[in-house]
């Protein structure tokens, strides 16, 4: 048996091998690699999810965990008794069990179009899982995928700042903003992350602001 490709050579603190395989397949459908750049899998989103689950958030370290327990309205937010750690462990096991009954193999080994159809069913709450709502799991997976793709690379996702490059987000602010704030010129800079500054990849000025490298864009308007 071979381990998952582990494209970024990361260590995993909470997720187990079948879960890593499941998530690598699933997040690649949510944000696929395409002509715009790397998708969620190559951006390290599964590593992000692993770190999130191993963090205080994953065990609901700062969330209220007492009763009363009751299904709330959407406005009342998270009301499940399960922590995110439990949600991922239970939901992936039960989705894989569903796949084995229906298609004789776990989610990660199914054809791509079959996986996509299953994710759509989870999103619409069309698959009845024994322990929790499939939409509840899908919503958490989608939220964490977005976080992993766009949060600071500090957390293991957004590798090479692919999410920020896609958006044109410059990341940490420059000390030049004071002068540039009134400018009508669009601002294009190589994004700078907390991780870049922590690891010395990007130098900072005397005030601690990173130096932005401006991206020169050729305008075709005149030609």
């Amino acid at each position: 048996m071979t381990l998952s490709d582990n494209p970024i050579g990361a260590s995993y603190l909470y997720l187990l091998e079948p879960e890593i395989r499941f998530l690598e397949a699933a997040v690649e459908h949510l944000i696929p690699t395409d002509e715009l750049g790397p998708g969620a899998r190559d951006a390290g989103v599964v590593v992000y999810i692993d770190r999130a689950l191993a963090s205080a958030w994953g065990g609901h370290g700062r969330q209220y965990r007492g009763g009363p327990w009751q299904e709330g309205t959407p406005q009342q937010g998270y009301q499940s008794r399960f922590t995110p750690q439990e949600v991922y462990r239970i939901a992936i096991r039960e989705i894989n069990a569903h796949c084995k009954v229906e298609f004789d193999r776990p989610f990660a080994q199914l054809a791509g179009d079959r996986q996509l159809r299953l994710l759509e069913q989870l999103e619409k709450d069309e698959i009845a899982l024994p322990s929790l709502s499939s939409k509840f799991f899908f919503d958490m997976l989608w939220r964490n995928t977005e976080e992993g793709y766009f949060a600071d690379p500090l957390y293991g996702g957004n590798r090479d700042k692919v999410g920020w490059k896609l958006l044109g987000f410059p990341g940490l602010p420059s000390g030049q903003y004071r002068e540039l704030v009134t400018s009508s010129e669009p601002y294009h800079a190589e994004p700078v992350s907390v991780l870049d500054v922590q690891t010395g990849q990007v130098p900072v000025d005397a005030e601690g602001f990173p130096k932005h490298v401006i991206i020169k864009r050729n305008s075709n308007k005149e030609s």
Binding site: A56, D152, G208, F209
Partner: peptide, 17 residues
């Protein structure tokens, strides 16, 4: 609130102490 960690959007928008 020291730089650079003060610019951590995940921390301050969602999880901050």
């Amino acid at each position: 609130f020291q730089k650079p960690n003060v610019y951590d959007e995940l921390k301050f928008d969602r999880h901050s102490d």
